[in-house]
């Protein structure tokens, strides 16, 4: 099930309250569909997608997490090593917006390195908006991350989430790559991302030798 050549392998996680549309965003992005048959994510789900950013291919290993607090101790296991984070709230659910900072703080505790984040307000298709665009922008500014409003239902701005995130990932990864080659004596473990990104040199092939 090889997905072919890639330059970097990056772990991305998607966080946000229950029911804001995390899974739908990913299904739209990875499988190009809006599934009417969707269910609440219990624990974590996993998807893979190759993202083309200019001349580079970034293989995204995307972890879709349960929004419900009860599963926090399970989902938190997957925070480790994440290099990209998508924070999602629902434009029609005020609480989900209020809780975004809680999500941001929860992951800052688990990742020490700088990660690439993006803030997403989903359900742009709905008439019943409870969070204004300016509020989302302000929050994104506070944490220095890009911001988008999207509709997974209508496939609006979904690709943009990953393009924006991908641009930033590429810049960081290229910088980290330089740091590594400038400091060859340093252990790669010091760069958390390199546990994943190190595989740059060994393009993927499915393991047939077992």
């Amino acid at each position: 099930m090889s997905l072919g050549y890639y330059d970097w392998l990056v772990k991305v996680i998607v966080l946000g309250d229950s029911g804001v549309g995390k899974t739908n965003i990913l299904t739209q992005f990875c499988d190009s569909k809006f599934s009417q048959n969707y269910t609440a994510t219990i624990g974590v789900d996993f998807k893979i997608k190759i993202l083309n950013i200019q001349d580079k291919k970034i293989k995204l290993q995307i972890w879709d997490t349960a929004g419900q607090e009860r599963f926090r101790n399970i989902t938190q296991t997957y925070y480790k090593g994440a290099f990209g984070i998508i924070f999602v709230y629902s434009l029609i659910d005020r609480n989900s917006f209020n809780n975004v900072e809680g999500w941001i703080k929860s992951i800052l505790e688990s990742t020490t390195d700088e990660v690439c984040s993006i803030l997403v307000g989903n359900k742009l298709d709905s008439q019943d908006r409870r969070v204004q665009t300016a509020e989302g922008e302000k929050l994104a500014q506070k944490y220095n991350m890009p911001f988008l409003e999207t509709s997974a239902l209508e496939n609006k701005n979904i690709q943009d989430i990953f393009d924006r995130l991908g641009q930033n990932l590429k810049i960081r990864l290229e910088n980290e790559g330089q740091k590594v080659s400038n400091n060859t004596q340093r252990q790669s473990g010091q760069f958390k991302l390199n546990q994943e990104a190190n595989q740059t040199e060994q393009p993927t092939s499915s393991c047939n030798s077992c």
Binding site: M1, I48, Q61, T204, N208
Partner: peptide, 14 residues
């Protein structure tokens, strides 16, 4: 499963 890597194993199982 036995020929899969991490990603493909998970994709199969979920």
């Amino acid at each position: 499963l036995i020929v899969g890597d991490f990603g493909s194993i998970l994709l199969i199982l979920q």
